[in-house]
């Protein structure tokens, strides 16, 4: 009988958790933003805001794809390696013009996504294993294509895409915003988006309801790959160099963090696009504020870890039922 007591207590706490999961990330973002401004009015300067946006845009692009994959109860660890691959091929094809280079990079991202998606959908390999294999393999391919050293990139359009601004806001941020809007429409308004969350919520039920489960899985990994390749192009343009050995390293973890902090459950069945944006911004601001106030990097990491733990705990609704 005593075993029932904690269960009852948990049930009592559930509404609080539900609200926390629903709106917690926005509240936390607002609080953090206010704190940053109060601590240092310079935080609001145009220069600083632009730096933050430059830094967050690629992570956000990757996180959008990651949110779709996680919505199907999957995960995509290969995104960092896809960025490296994009960075490796862009210098090779930029001579043909930027569109060709971008198409090649995006095509490779799509191919990688198809490979991961096929492993998950047809061979029923666990997503974490399938994409881990890709993560390792694609980094190898990237260094084969590029060699060990970084290469400078001088294409004017690509540099402009990575560094210029329109109406005071970086082009990369505009691009990210457009992708956010498209993803939101995709998730909430299209057949595909609704089928995606159904597959993540209950795959057996989705199959019995005649949903194209495999096609949905293939597509989410494909989208994730393309978005990662696009993020790779932005990173190359912003840095004016292609450095496959370092670019995109650990970005898969940043993206997963953004998605989870944004309230998308790792168990699938739900995709929170705006939450993901807020999650990415929150992690970016946390790091920025701590760094700007000379908190040592090691401590910053520990704070980030604590944020992730809180977010995962709050998103754990199914586990506690």
């Amino acid at each position: 009988m005593s075993a029932l007591a904690p269960a009852g207590a948990l049930r009592g706490a559930a509404p609080v958790l539900r609200v926390l999961r629903q709106y917690g990330v926005y509240a936390a973002l607002a609080v953090l933003f206010l704190a940053a401004v109060v601590l240092d009015a310079g935080f609001l300067s145009a220069g600083n805001v632009r730096i933050q946006l430059f830094q967050v845009a690629p992570t956000l692009l990757v996180a959008l794809g990651m949110a779709l994959v996680i919505g199907t109860e999957g995960i995509d660890l290969s995104v960092g390696a896809v960025i490296a691959l994009a960075a490796a091929v862009i210098p090779l094809y930029i001579g043909w013009g930027l569109p060709v280079a971008l198409l090649v990079a995006a095509g490779l991202g799509a191919l990688s996504g198809l490979a991961g998606g096929a492993m998950v959908a047809f061979a029923r390999v666990q997503p974490i294993v399938a994409t881990l294999a890709l993560m390792i393999g694609l980094r190898g391919v990237a260094s084969l294509l590029n060699g060990a050293s970084a290469k400078p990139v001088t294409d004017g359009t690509l540099l402009a895409l990575g560094a210029d601004a329109f109406a005071g806001v970086p082009l990369t941020a505009w691009l990210a915003a457009a992708c956010v809007a498209l993803t939101a429409v995709l998730v909430h308004r299209t057949t595909f988006g609704r089928q995606l969350v159904a597959v993540g919520d209950n795959r057996r039920a989705a199959r019995l309801a005649g949903l194209p489960v495999r096609r949905v899985l293939l597509t989410v990994y494909l989208l994730s790959g393309v978005l990662a390749a696009l993020a790779g192009a932005l990173i190359v343009g912003h840095g004016a160099e292609a450095d496959p050995a370092n670019q995109g390293r650990n970005i898969e973890l940043d993206a997963i963090t953004a998605v989870v902090v944004g309230g998308t459950p790792l168990a699938g069945g739900s995709v929170r696009v705006l939450g993901t944006v807020a999650g990415a911004l929150f992690m970016q601001l946390t790091t920025a504020v701590l760094t700007q106030h000379d908190v040592p990097g090691s401590l910053t990491k520990i704070v980030e870890a604590a944020v992730i733990c809180v977010a995962v705990y709050a998103s754990q609704e199914r586990g506690t039922r």
Partner: peptide, 12 residues
């Protein structure tokens, strides 16, 4: 196990 999408609404 095979019918409901437990996390989704009646409509969905």
């Amino acid at each position: 196990a095979e019918g409901l999408l437990p996390g989704r609404s009646v409509r969905e």
